[in-house]
Nucleic acid binder design. Sequence first.
DNA 1: GCCAACGTTGGC
DNA 2: GCCAACGTTGGC
Length: 152
Amino acid sequence: MNYWLMKSEPDVFSIDHLAALPGKKSSWEGVRNYQARNFMKQMQIGDQAFFYHSSADVIGIAGIVRITGLAEPDLFALDKKSDYHDPKATKDKNPWVSVTVTLVRKFKKVITLAELRETKGLEKMLVLQRGMRLSVHPVTEKEFKIVSEMAK
DNA sequence: GCCAACGTTGGC
DNA sequence: GCCAACGTTGGC
C-alpha cells in the first residue's frame, strides 16, 4: 500500500467537484509529464492520495482520495478539442494514462502549505521542496499519518 | 504579473 | 549528444 499526492487547480477540478460526482468518483486525467505518469502507473487499488489544491486562493491539502481504478489510456490525449490533447499521441501509441479516484474524506479546512511547512516531521515532504513541480508524486506513510492527524 | 525552476524542443 | 531558446508550473 502506497501513498501519493495529486495536484489539481481547484478552478479546473476541486475536491468539491469530486464530492458532487456520482459515487464521489472520477478519472484523474490530463497528466502530461512522464515522471508523474510513471507514478500513476505504479498506483495500486486501495492506495491513498492527498488531494492538493494548487494555484488557488487557499493552497494546500484539501482531503484524501483512494485509488479505485488502475492506470488506463488517457483518451483526452487523442481528443483534438481537449485542453489535454497531445498532437504526438495516437491510438496505438498513447503514452498518457489516467487513474480512477474516489473521495475518502474532505478535510474540514484545507491544510495550507504554510501550515505544512511549520509542521515537524514534514521537512522532507516532496511538495515542500524547492522547485517541486511534479503534479503526482509519492508521500511517505509517516507524512501521510502526520497530515491526516492534523486534519482531525 | 513576476519569476525561479524545471521540462521540452530543435538546430547544429 | 549538446545546449540555447522556449514553454510550463506554481508560489508569491
